[in-house]
Design a protein around this nucleic acid. Structure first.
Lengths: 201, 201
DNA sequence: GCTATTGTTGCACTGAGTGCATTTTAATTG
DNA sequence: CAATTAAAATGCACTCAGTGCAACAATAGC
């Protein structure tokens, strides 16, 4: 996907952004109505008012329509981690970064996507594959915070643990419905990590 | 993929198994020679001496050719976990199960697949997506070992942590070449988990 | 041997994704 | 404002993965 230019947003950039959002919304609606597999790119293009070919100037692939909005979110997390305090432990920095960015988390869209993915193993796989990007974002943030003090391997391991905790938190949140706050799930997941390891002692 | 029948293996079963191995070997050779994307299923079928259509009676998709052999391995891990001692901590049970099955781990094939995946982001994503199966296998084993004593969530979390540790171990092992033993990498990864958490205290 | 089952093939089709040439639209400059 | 340049948008033709179906070949069991 193309990056937004850092300059003041011109008409082109704004149009692009709006159309990007529009296509995503249309697609999610169609996926919810008819299912992911049964919805073709031709239909999405037609319903969005653009040509099928031009879809690929916005999204690299069909599943990117569902996941690409996360890139921006992941980027914010990376920056938030990089602004953490280097005296705290790695996992604590990540936890705080996640919690402080939770307001930017698009819960409604996530719920819709979760519904689309239900009973679609292939999509769930692609969702999992997309976790690579979260992990890389965490790694990027941690590397920026400790440019050389900590070994690459330690930071990588922390990234892996963190993304696992986040996935667990999201899973619980989606499963237990709206009764539970996502923040609590995240906090609990990171706590659970300590607990589970301590049991090993 | 079809399951091997538990009965004594007839001529059909044996042929199937041999052909399955044959196709896999031919495919890996072609992937190494010409790259994954540049190798079509038509070529694989032709080089394997079967029709393109018939490939799909062995593998559900192109990438399954690379990953399906892991199912058997994962199944053994699940059984090994289920045979663990219920008095030990979850992560310890998993660790021992992994280590005791390492002789069945096909290092050579894994190295070849890693080489094929290098510089192919899409394949790396699919590899990551395939980790779902490892996690499910671990979960299955743990659930069998503690049918009701431990909560589903605790076991799930342990599965997530374990699969993360295993991925880290594999990553280090692939990166540092043959100087390092995979068993050491696995042991170190599980140790590292304790260490990383203790830093949080 | 005969029969049911399973392996195997070919064919035609759908849909995602790409390369390319072309047209349309917006930004830039004189 | 008009001319130029760059980017957005389209249409077309193509490749390839994956599927449904009908037909045929091989094998297991009787």
């Amino acid at each position: 996907m193309r990056q937004a230019s850092p300059k003041p947003e011109g008409l082109r950039e704004r149009n692009r952004r709006e159309k990007y959002e529009h296509i995503t919304n249309v697609s999610i609606r169609l996926f919810l109505e008819n299912g992911y597999d049964a919805t073709t790119l031709a239909e999405i293009a037609h319903s969005s008012g653009i040509s099928r070919r031009h879809l690929f100037n916005y999204f690299d692939s069909k599943d990117e329509i569902l996941f690409s909005h996360l890139r921006e979110y992941y980027e914010m997390i990376a920056e938030s981690i990089a602004r953490g305090s280097p005296d705290e432990p790695t996992l604590e920095v990540v936890r705080k970064a996640i919690l402080s960015n939770l307001t930017r988390f698009d819960a409604e869209r996530t719920l819709a996507i979760a519904k689309i993915m239900r009973n679609n193993a292939a999509l769930q796989s692609k969702n999992r594959a997309n976790e690579i990007n979260l992990e890389k974002a965490i790694m990027k943030g941690l590397s920026a915070l400790w440019p050389s003090k900590m070994s690459h391997d330690r930071l990588l391991f922390a990234s892996i643990l963190s993304s696992g905790a986040i996935r667990f938190a999201t899973y619980i949140w989606l499963r237990d419905g709206n009764e539970i706050k996502l923040a609590d799930c995240v906090a609990e997941a990171f706590d659970r990590m300590k607990f589970e390891i301590q049991c090993t002692e």
